[in-house]
């Protein structure tokens, strides 16, 4: 009897997606351990990875990394298919949609910080929409909108600055083109 082997040909892009997704998942797990004053207010450090990938490898790769981060991150945190998972998936989809539009802005005027802030606002808007139209359809939740928006502005700015800094001085270990 011959041993049968299944060989999957992983392209360099697959390697890149896997590596960046692993990085994003790591940040998501770290962040889950941080205490938060209000459920839903998180720095969203994994979005830095999404921004880096978007800037360096384009929308398609960024969407893959983001989707893998949401699914695998929720599996590791045990929140797969819970409301929290749908919130994070909805937020990720909304921010990807806005990033897809925002990347057409002239690059010499709008840098990573713009993309990060816009994505953060889209993220919170997507989540509020899910909360309001599906999970808790009362206007009481909307009362917290300004808090979430303020958090989106602050964390969007910080993440954007980190991403802009990393893009200005690429770290070979995380953003190299070829797998080591």
């Amino acid at each position: 009897m011959t041993a049968s082997t299944i060989k999957l040909n992983a392209s360099p892009e697959d390697h890149r997606i896997a590596r960046m997704a692993a990085l994003a998942i790591g940040l998501t797990l770290m962040e889950a351990a941080l205490p938060s004053p209000l459920p839903g207010v998180k720095p969203g450090l994994a979005n830095i990875v999404t921004l880096l990938v978007l800037k360096q490898h384009g929308m398609r790769t960024a969407a893959w990394v983001s989707a893998l981060r949401v699914v695998a991150g929720s599996l590791l945190l045990g929140s797969f298919l819970t409301p929290g998972f749908f919130l994070s998936a909805g937020g990720a989809m909304a921010s990807l949609a806005v990033l897809w539009l925002a990347q057409r802005l002239p690059e010499q005027l709008f840098g990573a910080v713009s993309l990060s802030i816009l994505a953060a606002f889209a993220h919170i808007a997507g989540q509020m929409a899910i909360v309001y139209f599906w999970l808790i359809p009362t206007s009481g939740v909307l009362y917290l909108t300004p808090v979430f928006a303020a958090a989106a502005l602050v964390f969007g700015l910080v993440n954007g600055l980190v991403a802009a800094h990393l893009l200005a001085t690429p770290l070979p270990a995380t953003v190299s083109e070829e797998p080591a």
């Binding site: 606002f121 700015l157 200005a168």
Partner: peptide, 29 residues
């Protein structure tokens, strides 16, 4: 220094974000 990381449009987006937060707070609170 962070200034070199922010482009002119970034300041605009930042300002627009601030206005959005302020108007949301006004509207809801």
């Amino acid at each position: 220094k962070y200034h070199h990381l922010l482009r002119p449009g970034d300041w605009m987006v930042l300002a627009a974000g601030g206005v959005t937060v302020a108007s949301l707070a006004l509207a809801f609170w």
